[in-house]
């Protein structure tokens, strides 16, 4: 997963499921696999493959333990993941600002045109 420096767009976040996982981990210190699954309403395999991709990008940390007899896998963000998510947020905000100024420049031009006799 590389960051395209020109666009500031992080490929790690181009899938909605990975974006959701990262959003959850931004506001929760840790989150376990089953809770993620029930919250995101996805299958085990689908969730595991996206978690694996984020883990490979070193955006999240995995810890395995037991809750009674059931295995409990918890995930948390690494410092890198946190930074990447924040820059992704900034990227989105910039995109919105650009769109706004673009739209307003068009409407301004239209307004100028209508003022002409």
């Amino acid at each position: 997963m590389s960051v395209d420096s020109k666009l500031g767009y992080d490929k790690a976040f181009d899938h909605v499921l990975r974006l959701r996982i990262m959003s959850i981990l931004m506001v929760n210190p840790t989150y376990d696999f089953t809770s993620l699954k029930s919250l995101l309403q996805v299958t085990d395999g689908n969730l595991a493959s996206h978690l694996r991709q984020l883990e490979l990008a070193t955006y999240l940390r995995v810890e395995k333990s037991f809750s009674g007899r059931k295995p409990l896998t918890t995930y948390s963000l690494t410092e890198q993941g946190r930074k990447a998510f924040q820059s992704h947020l900034e990227f989105l905000e910039n995109l919105i600002l650009q769109n706004k100024s673009f739209k307003s420049s068009i409407t301004n031009k239209k307004a100028e045109n209508t003022e002409l006799p």
């Binding site: 974006l19 959850i24 506001v27 769109n99």
Partner: peptide
């Protein structure tokens, strides 16, 4: 991007 930000916000809330 607006929808993406809304998505992020809703996930943070739900979790």
């Amino acid at each position: 991007p607006e929808e993406e930000l809304a998505e992020i916000k809703s996930m943070m809330e739900k979790s």
